[in-house]
Design a protein around this nucleic acid. Structure first.
Length: 415
RNA sequence: GUGGCUAUGGUGAAGCGGUUAACACUUACGACUGUGACUCGUACAUACGUGGGUUCGAUCCCCACUAGCCACCCCA
């Protein structure tokens, strides 16, 4: 039995990878339009970093991390998300000393030990962006607008933006208590999971899929009615700025975040097309995180999107590349000539394919067609003698002559 | 961690107790020995996830294991 890959760790094969490259290139292009710079962070971090940032009672930290002790007896973890690492780097390199406002993006694999299912894998990939040092709601609106811009540029209309505010350390505990009290009064109508949630994560009960729970929590208090004046103003201003620039959104006061560090603005891009995995991208403000990690008292906001999920939405599209030219050669001398021409053209930036094994012309034409090449150059004895070969436009099906010269061929095919 | 479903070639699959294990795609070669896409022909599973069992006989029934998928939990 041959060795297979690990459960939940997938290969991204040619044919699929072009889609990924397109997603990544689009993200780089759009994010850089908004002034973001890439940061590359390591895959392994001290376990403590995630315990402190994500929250040590969250499921991610309690049971989903790939953690181990390395040869130096250090407790390390393969990153389950990117924000914590970016903030650690921001603090460690004192980037705030240069400018407290940093706009950073990253992309790469994340690891969570969960049961794989559609749109969820043990090694998955995120593209994320973070802004530090700005409390002003303009930045909230900008981050959201950028995210929508990215999806629009991918040609996707599907994921829609939902926003909410979770309040701050001032007002959230008050709301949390009010919600707990409400849920306790409905305890007998809740599912078993929600009964448990009342104490562990009452907000999550608002997001329950059970019809009974949905009904029971219909009249539940809303976070938005419990925001303190500061948070309320912030949320209102965020909405105004979104409207100012025409970024469409829905308010979802029942939206919950899975990580402990979120404050104030939170958001998700949701779709109905991915089965149980409706969140394609999600994020929010984390005004306390940088200080919690031992950095200066600076606010932050960011998001991460699941690349696999974005790729699933793009499933219908075709991103396959096509070579500019295929050279079909007949005979030993022609094959040498073809190899030489190919290399010369490649040096000029023309993508070229040949047949390596000296097959029949028919066979080579078939191969050219299979590659979906734009042109095919046909060289045999006669052509070498005449120093002129046939150049066939594969889409139009018409053939002309071209001098057997790298520059001439490149010019003919428009390169 | 829990539950449901599924496991036949490179791929999609038919077959459901005794068959040459269908068909399609892909691949290779060929159709007046130098021209693709359409068409046609030929070739391509000693083999039906693994291990047991039932049976005269199992790809087809039963059990276990393993893997995959989907869902719960949780999350991007």
């Amino acid at each position: 039995m041959a060795i297979t890959g690990i459960k939940g760790f997938n290969d991204i094969l040619p044919g699929e990878v072009e889609k990924w490259q397109h997603i990544e290139a689009t993200a780089r292009r759009v994010f850089e339009l908004y002034g973001f710079s890439e940061i590359r962070i390591p895959i392994l971090e001290k376990t403590e970093l995630f315990a402190r940032s994500i929250g040590d009672t969250t499921d991610i930290v309690e049971k989903e991390m790939y953690s181990f002790v390395d040869k130096g007896e250090k407790a390390v973890t393969m990153r389950p998300e990117g924000t914590a690492s970016v903030m650690r780097a921001f603090i460690e390199h004192k980037l705030y000393a240069q400018d407290p406002v940093a706009k950073l993006y990253y992309m790469g694999p994340m690891f969570r030990y969960e049961r794989p299912q559609k749109g969820r894998y043990r090694q998955f990939h995120q593209i994320g962006a973070e802004v530090t040092g700005v409390t002003d709601p303009k930045v909230d609106a900008q981050v959201l607008t950028m995210l929508c811009h990215f999806f629009a540029d991918l040609g996707l209309t599907e994921p829609t933006l939902q926003i909410n505010s979770l309040g701050c350390p001032e007002c959230r505990p008050v709301y949390r208590q009010a919600l707990k009290d409400f849920l306790r009064g409905k305890l007998d109508q809740l599912c078993d999971d929600c009964k448990r949630r009342v104490d562990t994560n009452p907000l999550r009960a608002l997001d329950c899929k059970s019809a009974h729970c949905k009904e029971a929590t219909e009249g539940a208090p809303s976070v938005l009615d419990h925001l303190c004046a500061g948070c309320n103003d912030h949320f209102a201003a965020t909405r105004r700025y979104l409207e100012l620039v025409g970024t469409k959104y829905d308010i979802n006061p029942r939206m919950v975040r899975g990580l402990d560090y979120y404050t104030r603005t939170t958001f998700e891009l949701v779709t109905g097309l991915l089965g149980a995995q409706s969140a394609v991208a999600a994020g929010g403000r984390y005004d306390g995180l940088i200080a919690d990690l031992g950095g200066p008292k600076l606010p932050g906001i960011g998001f991460a999107m699941g690349v696999e999920r974005v790729a699933l939405l793009l499933a219908a599209e075709e991103f396959r590349k096509r070579p500019d030219l295929f050279i079909a050669a007949l005979g030993e001398e022609a094959q040498q000539q073809a190899f030489s021409l190919m290399t010369g053209l490649q040096r000029l930036g023309v993508s070229v394919e040949i047949d390596y094994e000296g097959k029949s012309l028919k066979s080579q034409m078939r191969r050219s067609d299979k590659f979906n090449s734009r042109f095919t150059l046909i060289i045999g004895e006669d052509e070498i003698a005449r120093k002129t070969a046939g150049l066939k436009d594969m889409d139009a099906g018409v053939q002309g002559d071209v001098a057997l010269d790298v520059e001439a061929i490149a010019a003919k095919i428009g390169k």
